[in-house]
């Protein structure tokens, strides 16, 4: 069962107020759930739909369009690894493979200890610091194997 906490309810009220129509609050609400739960379950989609007078199908339709909303539980840290042109030219493919190997999730996925979810992502708008990755909300740029080791090892 998915329920909004009272803290959520307060946030949701504020979010909905920002828009002329309730429907517009859909992405912020999905984001709220994604951040708190790490993924968006069918029950959460239903709860969001109820809040915004939208069918759960519509919520899923929007949710499934975006790759940054996850449908399965994710790890404590979500690593979005850019592999678009600038990063690729600067060696992102190798670094991604390295990271996958290091975490034991080649090709991406969630580690057994549920600490990391590794995920390839298209351009994250930081080409100037390519290659880069984003861990939760933090951008890490100009990556090298050593830098990746250092960053991942330092995470609690």
């Amino acid at each position: 069962m998915f329920v909004f906490t009272s803290e959520d309810e307060n946030k949701i009220e504020k979010i909905i107020k920002k828009y002329p129509v309730k429907q517009s609050a859909l992405l912020p609400l999905l984001t709220l759930v994604q951040r708190r739960e790490g993924y968006i379950s069918p029950e959460a989609m239903q709860a969001i739909g109820k809040k915004l007078d939208l069918s759960p199908g519509y919520v899923q339709s929007v949710m499934s369009f975006y790759t940054m909303y996850h449908t399965e539980p994710t790890g404590k840290y979500i690593i979005l690894f850019c592999h678009n042109i600038s990063c690729q030219l600067n060696g992102a493919d190798n670094l991604f493979a390295y990271t996958g190997q290091k975490l034991g999730v080649s090709g991406g996925g969630t580690t057994e200890d549920k600490k990391f979810t590794l995920h390839k992502e298209e351009c994250l708008a930081a080409c100037c610091g390519a290659p880069m990755m984003r861990i939760n909300d933090i951008f890490h740029e100009n990556l090298t194997k050593e830098k990746i080791d250092q960053i991942l090892d330092s995470l609690p």
Binding site: M45, V59, S61
Partner: peptide, 20 residues
Amino acid sequence: QESALVMLNRGFNNEVGTFN
């Protein structure tokens, strides 16, 4: 006006489907 049948996913992978 039920929005029961929807377009899921994106791009080449989009497909007609229902909630869950």
